[in-house]
Structures are given as structure tokens and as C-alpha cells.
Nucleic acid binder design. Structure first.
Lengths: 200, 200
DNA sequence: GATGTAATATGTCAACTGTATTGGAACAGG
DNA sequence: CCTGTTCCAATACAGTTGACATATTACATC
């Protein structure tokens, strides 16, 4: 066996460089060459880890989703056991909104992902599956919270789930400096306060 | 005077061609040449009406905002006089969500607009001003509705405004076919029902 | 109908793109 | 040492891009 390199780690390094390019210059500038330069390697090296540009983009986007999930998991672990569903949802939304650097990077990748999905069948399927999976998770939490009496039984789980996910619509307001991050959190908390019957 | 053409109209024709390209192939394919082809003219003709590609994009994006405003105005005119603020807000949200072809086209342009704004100071200012202006309009409606007793006086106008605009976060769910359009409208109506104290 | 200008088409150019190819350096097992 | 494989740099290539320059066409005014 010749020189061995952690493939996964190398790909993640390149993906993070891609994130930075997307964040600072936009996805239009996320060319193989520019990502390579940002990562401090030759574009030939990038090609060694990603056969095509699309493969690189898909990996970077999936990686962004994974990292968001990871941050949510970590945030939830810091909650009580068992965590209150209101706090779990708050952590999820706080990590999906661009409220800190890591979340902003992944949020922008997600936005670019969705935009790409609208005219690329392959990415559409991936983005759809990922979003639907996240939606299912939220709906399960909502249903369980209704069962446990945290949320009124008169609430429709599907509609409440959609309204919760709609809160990511605060993103443009934050990114364009129309509202402050704390105003976004106030809105999220207000919505959650009205959704849950108990304020524990 | 030689052959005279309605400049504004020509620019709008090109802008609509740009919308179609963005909708079908993505903003990355919105080159001067491809837009010209979509519009059925030479790329030189496009340059005659727009000095640069950026000028073309900015015009098409501003035009999308104008058209959305126009659709809202028309929708509001069909309401009673004076229209109930709940119905006004419902029209605004329905036209901002990608629920019919025109709204979808302008919604996608808006999304591309915001993404561009994140790394282009000029576009950032324009997008921010437009969004802030729309936000102010919604907040005025909310404040008036509180004054008129349609919304409880315990509600905070700024937070309620942010929550209303957040409903545009349903867009990715609709565009990626995670939820059906009628589910989005159900969520919007549910939110409005809880915001307004009267159900007129 | 001559003329001038707006409208449009066509051509050119440098820059950049994704991908393919080639060559070689580093290194593990024989 | 030799060999095979991985890693990666350099280069080539065909295609597209935006910007610009040039050419042609259409038409209102004189």
C-alpha cells in the first residue's frame, strides 16, 4: 500500500473550503479551481477526491446537513433528560437559522441546495428526501408532545409541523439585516409559547 | 427619428425571458446569450437594452418585486371595502408563496435575489430596502388591526410581523413537493385565525 | 430619396470553465 | 532494490462566458 490519506477527512476539508467560497463569493464562484485555491491545494488534487464538480457540490451539501444534525444533537444533549419537546424544537430552529457562523455557513449551503434542486432532478430528490426526513422528525416530536399533554389535543400535528418549519423563513430577514438575531429568537419563542400549553 | 421602440416594454420582455431561464435552468444559466435566445433575439439586442449582465439581473429582480406588488394590489381590490386586514395579509402571503405560475416565477427570482445579495453589496442594499419596505407595510397593517380591535392588544406588533413574514418559509416545502399547496394555505389560515380575534 | 439615428445582428477577444491526460513523487509490500 | 498504487501537480483542450467592436437593417424626418 502506498501513501495513505484519510479520504473522508480530505473531502471534508475541501467541502469546508467550498462552504467558505459559497459564503463569501456565492455558489457561482464555487468552481473546482477556486475551491482548490481556497483549500490551498491544486485543482488536480480536488479532482482526485471528486470526479466531477457536481459530486463535490453534492458532498458539500450533504455534509452541511450532517453538520447541522450534529449541532442539534449536541444541543439537545445539553438539555435535561428527558428534554422538554419545546426545548428540543427550539434547539433545532436555532441551529437552522443563521444565528452563528457555523449555522450561517450551512444555512447558505442549504439555500443554494434548494435553488439548485429546482432544476436538477438528482439534487431535487436528495433535497426533498432530506427535508421530508427532517419534517417527519419534527412531526413525530409534535405528535408525542400532544400525547404527553404538552400541546393541546385540538392542534393538528401536520399543520403545526409545517408552521414550525416555516419559521426558517426568518432567514432572509436575518441575513439582510432587516431584523436582529434576538428578534428572530423572540419570534421563535413566541410561537413555541403559543404552541405549548405548559411553560416548563 | 428612426424606428422607435418602447424601451420599458422591451426590457420587461427580456426580464420575463430571464425569469423563464431562471425557473427552468437556474440563475447560473441566465447568461446574456441564453436569455437572448429565450427571448428570441440576438445577444447584441439584449446588450442594447442592458449595458451589462448585472444591470439585466437587477432590472429583472426589481421587476419581479413590482409584479408581486401588482398582483397583491389587484387581489386586495377584489376584497370588500374596507378590506379586512386578515384578508389583506392572506392575499399578500398567497402571492409571495409559489402557489401559481406567476407567483412561482417571481418567488424563484426573489430567492436568487437574496442569495446574490449575500455577497454583493449593491444587491444587498436593494434587497434589504425592498424587504424592509414590505415589512413596514405588514407592520402598519398589524398595528392598525390592533387599533381597530381585530388583533388582541396584548400582541407585540413587531414580533407578529416577523412571524407573518416567516410564513414564506413554507416555500421550500412547497417547491420540493414535501407538502401540497393546500397544506401551505391551511397553515397560513391557521396562523391568521390565531392572530385575529374576530373571524369576519 | 437622401440622411441620420435607433434597433438589431454578427464577429472578436480574453478570461474562465469542467474535464481529461500525463508525468512524477511518495511510499508500502515483495 | 523493485514494483504497484496512491497522491497530486501541470498542462491541454473544447466550450462558454461577458464585454466590446463592427456591420446591417429599419424608419422618421427633411
Amino acid at each position: 500500500m502506498p501513501k495513505q490519506v484519510d479520504h473522508r477527512e480530505r473531502r471534508e476539508t475541501i467541502a469546508r473550503a467550498l462552504w467558505r467560497v459559497v459564503e463569501q463569493r456565492g455558489i457561482a464562484h464555487a468552481s473546482v479551481r477556486e475551491v482548490a485555491q481556497e483549500a490551498g491545494i491544486s485543482h488536480g488534487a480536488v479532482q482526485h477526491y471528486f470526479a466531477t464538480r457536481e459530486e463535490m457540490l453534492v458532498f458539500a451539501m450533504d455534509f452541511a446537513s450532517e453538520q447541522t444534525s450534529r449541532r442539534v444533537t449536541e444541543g439537545v444533549r445539553e438539555l435535561g433528560d428527558p428534554p422538554h419537546p419545546r426545548d428540543v424544537l427550539r434547539v433545532m430552529l436555532a441551529e437552522m437559522l443563521p444565528l452563528h457562523p457555523d449555522a450561517r455557513a450551512t444555512s447558505r449551503m442549504s439555500a443554494a441546495y434548494v435553488l439548485e434542486a429546482l432544476h436538477d432532478a438528482n439534487i431535487h430528490t436528495r433535497a426533498r428526501d432530506g427535508l421530508a426526513q427532517g419534517r417527519d422528525l419534527v412531526e413525530r416530536i409534535v405528535r408525542q408532545a400532544i400525547t404527553d399533554g404538552h400541546i393541546g389535543s385540538d392542534r393538528d400535528p401536520a399543520t403545526e409541523t409545517n408552521l414550525l418549519l416555516a419559521l426558517t423563513g426568518l432567514t432572509p430577514l436575518i441575513e439582510l439585516n432587516v431584523i436582529e438575531p434576538h428578534e428572530a429568537l423572540t419570534a421563535v419563542d413566541q410561537h413555541l409559547d403559543r404552541l405549548f400549553t405548559d411553560k416548563g
